[in-house]
């Protein structure tokens, strides 16, 4: 076990480039809380990381689902446990940042309630339409919507609605928004011809390949790895984007050595071929391991960006 730990620490060092050799070790099983129910993307990702981490380090890592409010329930609880590195939480930035922006007085934590360990991946969010739709980019979509007296567009999370509201506000497109439960449902609405366009986070990729769906824009700050020829929303003239990051955090006040050891172990797990492959397969995106500092910065910037979305 000892040997395994050292080995893992070495690997972690090699990968997270320059992290100190960690002599920190957990005093019992580490709990990795997932802010979503079993079976979702966050759950699958979290379990893969936990499996890889415990194989590499010999630590006992237990994954627990704590669903509720897109991670709010889990982070609320996480803020109250001791910062000893025995309890970690994995969530997605968007629901947390939206709630911190819209109803900060009702949320019992803020960004400083946590120490941030690492990012996991960026969800790639696209705007799609049926292949035979009479528009190919945001400009022609807006023109189409004006002509039709309001095109229908499906979304499955608040920031997407806000992004479209900003575009509506700036262009008088009059796009009518339809709230769906998931990316899959939004895709179904597009394929069935019930809406003209939709936001989608990956479910649409096989349909790009089969030629039934086309992409109008990337709603992220950057273009997508699988469709580099499609411009982003900012590139198409609207200075707004949505970047949902998966990340792992711990209660604030984590000792420095624990932070480094954990962050390093997460980086190592993400860099392993198996995890990488699984993330590519399930989300069509590269894993990302920004480390504690950049993860924190990413959340701070994210909060400012969500503020813009809400016009605050």
């Amino acid at each position: 076990m000892k040997f395994k730990t050292i080995l893992a620490a070495l690997t972690a060092t090699a990968i997270s480039a320059g992290a100190a050799v960690a002599d920190w070790a957990p005093s019992g099983p580490i709990k990795l809380w997932i802010g979503f129910g079993a079976g979702g993307e966050t759950d699958t990702l979290g379990r893969l990381i936990a499996k890889d981490m415990s194989e590499a380090t010999g630590w006992d890592i237990v994954v627990e689902n704590k669903p509720g409010g897109g991670g709010i329930a889990m982070f609320t609880q996480l803020a109250t446990v001791p910062p000893d590195g025995q309890t970690l939480g994995m969530g997605v930035t968007m629901p947390v940042l939206v709630n911190l922006t819209v109803r900060p007085d009702q949320i019992p934590f803020d960004l400083d309630s946590f120490d941030y360990l690492n990012t996991v991946a960026l969800a790639q969010l696209g705007i799609i339409a049926k292949a035979d739709a009479p528009f190919d980019d945001l400009e022609s979509f807006i023109a189409y919507s004006k002509e039709k007296g309001g095109a229908l567009m499906a979304f499955d999370a608040k920031p997407q609605e806000l992004l479209m509201n900003v575009i509506n506000g700036q262009s008088d497109a009059g796009v009518k928004l339809l709230s769906t439960k998931s990316s899959a449902e939004a895709l179904q609405q597009v394929l069935g011809g019930h809406v003209d366009a939709a936001f989608n986070a990956g479910a649409h990729i096989p349909y790009l390949d089969s030629g039934e769906v086309k992409m109008i824009a990337s709603a992220n700050a950057s273009r997508h790895s699988y469709a580099t020829d499609v411009a982003t929303v900012p590139e198409q003239g609207y200075d707004i984007y949505v970047d949902p990051w998966f990340y792992i955090a711990a209660p604030a006040g984590l000792p420095e050595d624990a932070k480094e050891a954990l962050s390093g172990a997460i980086s190592a797990a993400l860099a392993s071929d198996a995890t990488k492959e699984a993330i590519m397969n399930s989300m069509h995106t590269e894993p990302s391991m920004a480390g504690p500092e950049e993860t924190k910065q990413m959340l701070v910037d994210g909060l400012a960006n969500v503020g813009t979305l809400f016009g605050k």
Partner: peptide
């Protein structure tokens, strides 16, 4: 998906 099989039209 974990096994690299993408359900869909193809």
């Amino acid at each position: 998906k974990i096994h690299g099989i993408q359900p869909g039209p193809l």
